[in-house]
Write a protein that binds this DNA or RNA. Sequence first.
DNA 1: GCGACAG
DNA 2: ATCTTGTCGC
Length: 225
Amino acid sequence: MEWPTTIADAKRLQEEMVGRVNLTTLARKPSTICGVDAAYVNGQTVAAAVVYDYPTLTCREDAVAALPTTFPYIPGYLSFREGPAILAAINRLTTLPDLFIVDGQGIAHPRGIGIATFLGVLLDRPTIGSAKSRLVGTYDEPSDSRGSWTLLTYRERTVGAVLRTRQGVKPLFISPGHLVTLDEAVAIILASCTRYRLPEPQREADRLVGIKKREFPPLGEPSSA
DNA sequence: GCGACAG
DNA sequence: ATCTTGTCGC
Ligand SMILES: [Mg+2]
């Protein structure tokens, strides 16, 4: 696929793709779920995809990919900055997972198409947006107990949930990406948070990307010798 | 015009 | 996201 270069073109693509979003119930219970994330180092965007069996949460496989960072970070356009590298990592997996947990928003987005939704439509696969902070919407703070959650509302519409995945930590902003309902998204995320604030697959993708970054040293300074 | 604003 | 050691509260 050819990626848009300008914000105007990116916006047009989002408006065109949002019409293909499907928020119906999961066709079948996922047996494999995959966490994806990206990091930046020396002009490169490093992405990772980590697959787990579900609901046992046993790690199955992982893949990493790196591409030059071309698009700037602009709230509302994260898909175009991280999307290319994340898809490259996913393409290196042995088998396409049943569902993806993406570090970012699903439909809780200005135009209803955050990176989780965007990737779901492109892959035609169920996706869930799992963000560490809010992009849009209003909400009431969920109580401090694990599993407590409140609705995230945007323009009079329910677009997600604010979920406490562990006691004593900041809540996660969960929103359906594609081919899943909000209730299913919350249930799957909570079932995947066994040790940390983040779901195991997302946490592992984040950790792996941090390790792989070290393999991209700064461009050598012209040596004087 | 001003402030908000995923990663 | 990234730059970074110790410190604090659950
Ligand atoms: Mg991230």
